[in-house]
Design a binder for these strands. Structure first.
Lengths: 335, 335
DNA sequence: TTGTAGGCGTTATCAA
DNA sequence: TTGATAACGCCTACAA
């Protein structure tokens, strides 16, 4: 009975099909009448070993019949690595573009036998270093930027690190916004800057690009207002500020969500986006597709770059170069 | 000494700070000059054992100095269970409410030493049964409904299953929408039904509730239009249909995103939500907070229910009852 | 108060 | 073509 130690002492009442005994590969071997090694060879399709077709099918059938599922922790322990790709995000609402990238990444990795799991991390809740005692990923994909200490914690772990930040040059989005508005004759521009920790790096890059374009074109300085998407009052205040400033005829928004909030605030004031004030976003989210002028990202190309980097990391190869054209202007009604 | 003959093969060329040797608890024991058991007792704060303060601090200091991190797979293998709570979602864009619930869940679980990981599953990409060979969760939280075969695959695994579907009575949201609009004198109502696999169950429940309210109040049947949020044309078509139907003065939307798309389409036509057509959503997402009338969910209460269910599952206890008032009407400008 | 020993499920190595 | 065995890192009953 001491052999049963590890397992739950079976709380007196357990009629539910609770923690049944795990079906191990040893069970499959025993029932099949072969050795554990043979089972392993068959289940893993080991190339070198030649297994007779009869044995192979017998093992496969037995495994299926008994409902054997390889046990991930044991496998990881033996191999010294897992098949988990952990996507670190600061917020589960990490943006429609990243959502789609992760979907495509998981699709691509499924063929290789890897899986993408997402974790929302917050050093205040659980230090990153504690994470490795709970999950042991093969590759960590940092969605969005990391601080230097965060990076080093990951580097110190045994996982390889892939950064998505930097693949898409977010500053170009800001530049494209300004360039387009300027081409339509707008001279004095407002800028709606998003203030949330989870998007800070991206937000700063976009603003930087917009400022650069303004300078390059010799336009007056941007009228930057900070928006907290959780507080609609900041949108109203920003809008009223722009409307009160003579000459401002257009606004660049950090993204489509902010842009839509501005549009809604305009409507509240009996004004119309695209008529009384030009508004341009970034992302081309579904809700934008009705009428918002925006900057679209080539998600497939972006995802391909991420996929390439992750596959290289898995194979312990140097990351492939990730350059390409990812951004495209979409003109609709609001600007 | 034979222990030292392990002879790490040291692949000829390995200049990169690649897969360094893992620091094991045995290393900590050896360097500290104590047994492996002692290290384990100290690191896990085992209550029964009394460890001298000196030993305790020595071990802790050594572990920190060597950078020892307990290795999750080994721990899971020994214990027969992991500390992973896997949230299954059909789409990473699984809604702002669920995003917040997962955040609160992870916060609550951090204290217990568990972690929440999210996985976007799609049977067409990777059968659920394959997942258990890649990750071995202690608890699976199904965000949104599951099909019967999906449920049984999870039940067959060794993970416990927690369902979030059913905690919040989504049909009540539909009822509240209709009740409110009726109270404002609207008689003939449109309904914007969302057509996406990832929200189907919720969408059907909300529509069901709306229909029930219409019947109860003796109003004419709902003019239901199906919206595909990825295709703005469906929004325009739906709106034109309602506008062309005499007597329709208000529309219930499946959620705020759909509602915002309708508002944008109204603006495109020179009309205004709340004036030319009443619009009401569900969710109270940030972008709605500017002017959209909507139904808000008490996310904290919802999350508390989920947290309770997950903690019970971890402790192998029966799930606590999850009843409560989760929904609240928020009146703004659009209805 | 601390140490010893055994085993969790899997896979690689070696032998048959 | 297949089988026996050791090892991955950790935890814990039992012995000292």
């Amino acid at each position: 009975m001491s052999a049963e130690t590890g397992s739950t002492p079976a709380p007196s009442g357990d009629p539910a099909p609770g923690p049944r005994k795990r079906v191990t590969s040893a069970d499959v071997a025993r029932v099949s009448g072969v050795s554990r090694a043979t089972v392993s060879y068959v289940l893993n399709n080991v190339p070198g070993k030649a297994i007779s077709e009869g044995t192979r099918e017998l093992v496969l059938a037995t495994a299926r019949r008994l409902g054997h599922v390889p046990y991930a922790p044991a496998r990881s322990l033996r191999l010294g690595r897992s098949n988990i790709v952990l996507a670190l995000v600061r917020d589960f609402a990490f943006g429609p573009v990243s959502h789609r990238v992760l979907r495509l990444l998981d699709n691509a990795l499924a063929e290789r036998g890897y899986v993408v799991l997402a974790h929302r991390f917050d050093e205040a809740v659980r230090p990153l270093s504690e994470l490795w005692g709970l999950v042991s990923p093969n590759v960590v994909v940092a969605m969005g930027g990391l601080t230097v200490p965060e990076e080093s914690v990951i580097t110190d772990s045994h996982a390889k690190l892939v950064r998505t930040h930097g693949i898409v040059h977010q500053d170009l989005a800001g530049e494209m916004q300004v360039d387009y508005l300027a081409s339509r004759g707008h001279r004095r521009l407002g800028y709606a800057f998003a203030d949330a920790p989870s998007v800070r790096l991206v937000a700063e890059e976009r603003l930087l690009g917009a400022r650069r374009a303004v300078q390059r074109l010799g336009l007056p300085e941007l009228a930057v207002a900070t928006i907290d998407t959780d507080d609609p009052a900041t949108v109203g205040a920003a809008l009223d500020g722009w409307l009160a400033t003579p000459g401002i005829t257009a606004v660049c928004a950090h993204n489509d969500e902010v842009a839509m909030m501005i549009c809604a605030a305009l409507t509240s004031r009996g004004l119309t986006a695209g008529k009384d004030l030009a508004v341009i976003g970034v992302d081309n989210v579904p809700v934008a597709r009705v009428s918002l002028t925006t900057i679209e990202m080539d998600v497939q190309a972006y995802a391909d770059a991420v996929i390439g980097a992750v596959l290289a990391a898995i194979d312990d190869e140097p990351p492939p170069p990730a350059d390409g054209e990812y951004l495209r202007l979409i003109v609709r009604e609001t600007a």
